[in-house]
Design a binder for these strands. Structure first.
Length: 284
DNA sequence: CACCATGTTCCTTG
DNA sequence: CCAAGGAACATGGT
């Protein structure tokens, strides 16, 4: 489910539902999901805490908590991994099969569900320190981006997944941004010229903000019904609300016609992950 | 059975 | 020390 836009939409959805609410009880159903925090510390710290706010940093959800008896705010970090989902459900609704964490909020319940258990909810905030620039901020510009690329021979697509460089791009939007910018994903990072860096910077911002806008305008239902949270990608069985078909132009479209020139879209493998491109529109 | 999947971390090699 | 590559993590869909 998760790259920057999906997390942003989720945070906007959760914020009004969680803000200023008290956690009556916290229950960890899968110890790995709160690692490196221990189950005991996690549950004891969250029990009775007030949720002061929910923010996003890169692909992380940042929950600000005020534990009972604390004056200071502490950070609870959430990451969805590949299959994580978070939502509020009724008290009497049964928990899904791969429930990782449950927060009892009184009249309803917050659920962190994660099929593959790659995601986390943890009190360890250190991962935030390693993150690079937020791609939608003004600090992410062609000048700074070009500076960061110039020492690397790695293919630009692989470089785009490096969270120390651009914090929040993932495998889907990396392919999409390169397509929009007309740049070959194989091109060594440091070989991009100024025009290409400018085009890629703009394409990244555009692809991400369009996805957020799309996700914010579509009717979403996160309450456990995965076929209803329309922004998100679920493999070949993705649902198709109106204007969804235009959203991803190359990702997972190997064998289909490029929407721009009609050439057949290709799938290649880079750093053990799929990249999709139009060999005609992305020659250099 | 085989291969693929929105992510990150850790280990090895150069 | 750094850059780069690959395995590992775990489960399910096709």
């Amino acid at each position: 489910m998760p790259e920057l836009p999906e997390v942003e939409v989720l945070v906007q959805h959760l914020r009004p539902l969680l803000q200023n609410r008290r956690i009556r009880n916290a229950s960890v159903r899968r110890a790995k999901s709160v690692h490196p925090t221990s189950v005991e510390v996690f549950e004891a710290t969250l029990k009775g805490a007030r949720i002061q706010g929910v923010e996003r940093r890169a692909k992380y959800l940042v929950f600000q908590l005020k534990p009972r008896g604390f004056r200071k705010t502490i950070i609870l970090l959430g990451h969805l991994g590949m299959t994580g989902r978070m939502y509020i459900q009724g008290r009497r609704t049964p928990f899904p099969k791969h429930t990782a964490v449950v927060l009892d909020l009184g009249c309803d319940v917050f659920v962190f569900e994660d099929t593959r258990y790659f995601g986390r909810m943890t009190l360890e905030a250190r991962p935030l320190a390693q993150l690079g620039t937020e791609p939608l901020s003004k600090h992410f510009n062609a000048q700074a981006f070009g500076q960061a690329l110039k020492r690397s021979r790695q293919p630009i697509k692989v470089k785009l997944l490096d969270q120390r460089l651009v914090a929040g791009l993932g495998n889907i939007y990396a392919s999409e941004a390169l397509f929009r910018a007309g740049i070959s994903p194989r091109k060594p990072a440091r070989s991009l010229n100024i025009r290409q860096i400018q085009a890629l910077t703009a394409a990244i911002k555009r692809v991400l903000s369009e996805a957020i806008r799309f996700g914010s305008t579509v009717l979403l239902n996160f309450a456990g019904e995965r076929d209803r949270d329309g922004l998100f990608y679920f493999g070949k069985r993705r649902i198709t609300p109106r204007n969804y078909s235009e959203r991803l132009r190359v990702y997972d479209r190997a064998g289909q016609a490029c929407p721009r020139c009609g050439t057949v879209i290709k799938r290649i493998v880079q750093a053990a992950r799929s990249t999709y491109l139009c060999p005609e529109c992305q020659r250099h």
